[in-house]
């Protein structure tokens, strides 16, 4: 499967799991998308570790150093899986996996060339020497524990946006 097909498949499946699905080309486009997605003035955790995060960080005047105090996390993630519409968060490189758990809104940026076609493709890469934490995230936190009625936003984020850049 080629790049654009993978990206479309990933975004389609992410949207089916109730994530906001976005595709951008270039940094200007990414910043414009973030401007639309992230409510202005909200406390944002953006670690600023990768090129994309460094480019995004100045967009948020109210940046906080601790994800616990943030309402929104904006971060670049390890990768994505087209088959399931999943983003892959790992603890490698000192990444706080809780950044995508504690705030109510998680915005995950994934590079187009980091989209794996299938679960097998991802696991083949990480299976040998996994980092302390790998979390596959598909859509926002949810439950159906009361009468099997879907409720979004239990302990994790109630809103998840994925941006392919």
């Amino acid at each position: 499967m080629s790049g654009p097909d993978l990206s479309a498949r990933f975004l389609g499946n992410a949207a089916a799991a109730a994530a906001g699905a976005h595709s951008v080309s270039g940094t200007g486009d990414l910043l414009a998308a973030l401007g639309r997605i992230v409510p202005a003035g909200s406390p944002v955790y953006c670690p600023g570790l990768t090129e994309l995060e460094k480019a995004a960080a100045p967009l948020f005047p109210n940046r906080v150093a601790d994800c616990m105090a943030a309402e929104v996390t904006v971060e670049e993630v390890f990768g994505a899986i087209a088959e399931t519409g999943t983003i892959v968060c790992v603890s490698e490189g000192g990444r706080a996996v809780q950044a995508g758990l504690l705030p109510a809104h998680h915005v995950a940026i994934v590079r187009r060339d980091r989209i794996f076609a299938t679960l097998d493709d991802l696991l083949a890469v990480v299976a040998g020497a996994p980092p302390t934490n790998i979390t596959l995230v598909t859509g926002p936190s949810r439950t159906a524990d009361i009468e099997l009625t879907l409720a979004i936003g239990v302990h994790g984020p109630e809103r998840l946006d994925v941006i392919v850049a």
């Binding site: 799991a17 399931t84 519409g85 980092p131 598909t138 949810r142």
Partner: peptide
């Protein structure tokens, strides 16, 4: 569900 919202793989404690 096609997949649960979260699948966590935990290998050892914090290093």
């Amino acid at each position: 569900q096609t997949i649960t919202s979260y699948v966590s793989v935990i290998t050892g404690p914090r290093k």
